[in-house]
Design a binder for these strands. Structure first.
Lengths: 268, 268
DNA sequence: AGGGCAACATTGACTAGACAATGTTCAACC
DNA sequence: GGTTGAACATTGTCTAGTCAATGTTGCCCT
């Protein structure tokens, strides 16, 4: 077989700044997605078509598509082809969880813009005694390995897992309480904690974002190219003792994390 | 060349649940990283060594390593090999930016654990009039394309870009003010806004996480497998008019986003 | 009409090899 | 001693092909 260019692959068509072919292919498709020429849900040309169009091997096209997949722009649906991913955001509001805080008109506006209808929420709860992993131990200020109560929830919307919510409590303060029961606590675990004599006075929120572990991919049924946000909430009673450490794991492309802040009298 | 197995590639050694080879390779290395057997900064075996160890083609090893790279666990340093990435977190505290808020002892503790010494911060500022992009326009409640003031900052630590911080203001309220000058505003732009008669009363924080656009990769000099957190802050004056919309882009693996919340009298 | 089965198109996994790109290292030279 | 440059090891890019896996589609038979 003879090719017109004897082996050089950089030169073959030197438009652009001579990026590798697979990156040029990725960029071209990315641009079409950004410009709307390829809309969400629409199908890409097949690998073979693209290979022919660009005059490269199928593997090179695959490399290009792999870039887009890892960026979360494209998904493969096996025997059909590749499709532009459509993304829509879901609201995650740490401050508003099951309780009505002041919520200004601006906050209401945001929520209304995002919340949609026809959602069927459900959850699974599982309570167990576990040895505190290092991250939890550090935040609850106990030695790693100390036994704590873990209340693990996976929340679903329309049957799809939407977030992981694992709360941890020091064993001695929740022992024999309602919190130990693997059922929904109607008034909220925070209220339950307060009733036990540990009203939370303040909390610290930490948000990390990273690519998920395989375990998280499994529990949340994530596609490739989906980063997760890991949100720790550590709750303290008035004297500064931590009484709760919750880990939320949110698939990033399905959530917006929303906080509201009031500037009491710090400036103006 | 004869192989003992005539073409079947699934069976060749059927330990585990018969995942594809490249995934088994990735998992094996990932485990070694998680267990600490391969510590941060340490070098992986070369592709050829791994190919021989596992009895597969080099390309298959490459696919496995690509998984780890896209997870942000491993980086390539070209003629040397692949190395386990070392990650350290940097503090990002929306509430504490250049102003001392109450900051409880717990918050101090967190900051001390994370902040390190010997850091040389610097920044570039650039102020321009731009047509509001859709996301900004929506939050400032103006029509897209309306001219607004954009105050763009890139912050560096030890010369490395650490975050993008773009603040947007309605043109009419900051016109001819200090905010229009591309220099650091010592007392903070929020104080400057207040002095102009627009004291902010509250703000809404939205946090999205996603894989970065190529433009963000360029501006922040990101490696592969690094998601970014996009943090919008919209500030409102008492009557509910938005007067500021700031977009922060943070490379995720370099930041923790930390909030502190007080539970005024909502529960207990 | 419906259920099941076979053909099919497409992506997924893998091989064996070639050549390019690129910092590192070290020896030779000034 | 310092600089230059060549050899080198390693990853990066690409080809051309094979076979596997997997939903979809539509035909065929009941």
């Amino acid at each position: 077989m003879f090719n017109r260019m004897s082996k050089t692959q950089k030169v073959d068509t030197f438009r652009g700044a001579s990026l590798p072919a697979y990156q040029r292919i990725a960029a071209a498709i990315r641009d079409k997605i950004a410009s709307g020429e390829l809309a969400g849900g629409q199908q890409l040309p097949t690998e073979l078509e693209l290979a022919e169009q660009w005059g490269v091997a199928r593997q090179t096209v695959r490399n290009g598509i792999a870039v887009l997949v890892s960026e979360g722009l494209v998904v493969a649906r096996r025997p059909l082809g590749h499709f532009v991913r459509k993304r829509e955001h879901m609201l995650y509001r740490p401050q508003g969880e099951s309780r009505d805080q002041p919520a200004s008109p601006e906050m209401d506006r945001f929520c209304q813009q995002i919340i949609e209808e026809g959602r069927v929420p459900s959850q699974t709860i599982d309570v167990s005694l576990v040895q505190a992993p290092p991250d939890i131990a550090e935040r609850l200020r106990v030695d790693p390995g100390t036994v704590v109560v873990a209340r693990r929830r996976v929340r679903y919307i329309n049957g799809e897992p939407i977030n992981i919510n694992d709360s941890h409590f020091p064993l001695d303060i929740v022992k024999d309480s309602e919190i130990m029961s693997p059922a929904d606590v109607a008034r909220g675990t925070n209220q339950a904690l307060a009733d036990l004599g540990y009203p939370q006075d303040r909390a610290i929120d930490e948000i990390y974002t990273r690519m998920p572990t395989p375990e998280q991919i499994r529990r949340l049924d994530l596609g490739p190219g989906t980063p997760v946000a890991v949100h720790y909430v550590t709750g303290y009673v008035a004297d500064g003792t931590p009484v709760r450490c919750t880990v939320n794991v949110l698939p990033s492309d399905q959530h917006v994390i929303v906080f509201e802040r009031k500037f009491e009298r710090t400036w103006s």
